[in-house]
Design a binder for these strands. Structure first.
Lengths: 143, 143
DNA sequence: AATGCTTACCCACAATTCCCCACTAAATGC
DNA sequence: GCATTTAGTGGGGAATTGTGGGTAAGCATT
């Protein structure tokens, strides 16, 4: 389970450290440090999948009947997918097109999302959170 | 699997570098660097098939009963098909008629699409992605 | 046979990426 | 509170990738 939020800085070369807590989850729960990072279709941020989850998503896509929506989804998600193994310092190099998509410059926000985790430009994250506070109003889940 | 996106520039002679990641996939997964590039029937871009996939497509076409639609499809796809082996620098020379079909001038976008990959004029790709972002809204496939 | 055009193949440079080491700051343990 | 470990950040050098250009070979037209 990926949970918690962390903010790290991207350096001039476009590298960001994956939070140690997440790397730990990968090692202990997945025994596989490989992650796949893609564009999120929901908004301007990136989603990181442990390899196992990525395979699961691929399978689900393959089992879905073709449609214009699916093709759009694939173009956003699959085409942007890139596999990474963090370097010895635990960093990955985010490609320019991805940085652009997610408006990333320096301050990066990581947010655990259960089986995956999200990577945001900090500014976008803050804004999203504002919205979510309103959206979640009155949404009771038995609390 | 071809995945990830890359943008390269076409030079004055009409040559573009095939992204190294894709060339790698060809070598390791196919042991055959030959690719076939054709017009895409879906929109104004090109599709690149590793030889094995191309043969598979041909077989499927051969097994399809004749119809006006099939003839149209063949005219678009088969007639334009051209086989390439990247030169020592990993480039191919895109024929003028293909450049024209896909509105290519300089900035070229490569997009992995699983068993094949797509080659777009960057401007067209960007536009397509804008559309896809709207189209994919509300398309839930888990995550 | 000569000319011009296109294509194929080669070399060279520039930019990017990869991999390693080093430093600082924060967290942990005694 | 001090020493030790861990996390995050910066930077250097080597290797890879992408790009531009040059030269020779093939082809068609004249």
């Amino acid at each position: 389970m990926f949970q918690g939020e962390f903010s790290n800085n991207m350096d001039d070369k476009g590298r960001v450290s994956i939070p140690a807590a997440f790397r730990d989850t990968l090692k202990t729960h997945h025994a596989d440090e490989r992650i796949v990072i893609t564009r999120s279709p929901h908004s301007r941020y990136l989603t990181a999948y442990p390899m196992r989850e990525w395979k699961r998503l691929q399978a689900r896509i393959a089992a879905t009947p073709p449609s214009p929506q699916l093709r759009a989804f694939k173009r956003i998600v699959i085409s942007s997918a890139q596999e990474y193994i963090p370097d010895r310092q635990g960093r990955v190099l985010v490609a320019p097109s991805m940085r652009e998509y997610a408006d990333m410059d320096r301050a990066i926000q990581f947010a655990g999302a259960g089986e995956t985790f999200e990577i945001w430009a900090k500014a976008s994250w803050d804004k999203q959170l504002e919205n979510d506070l309103v959206l979640a109003q009155g949404f009771e889940l038995g609390l």
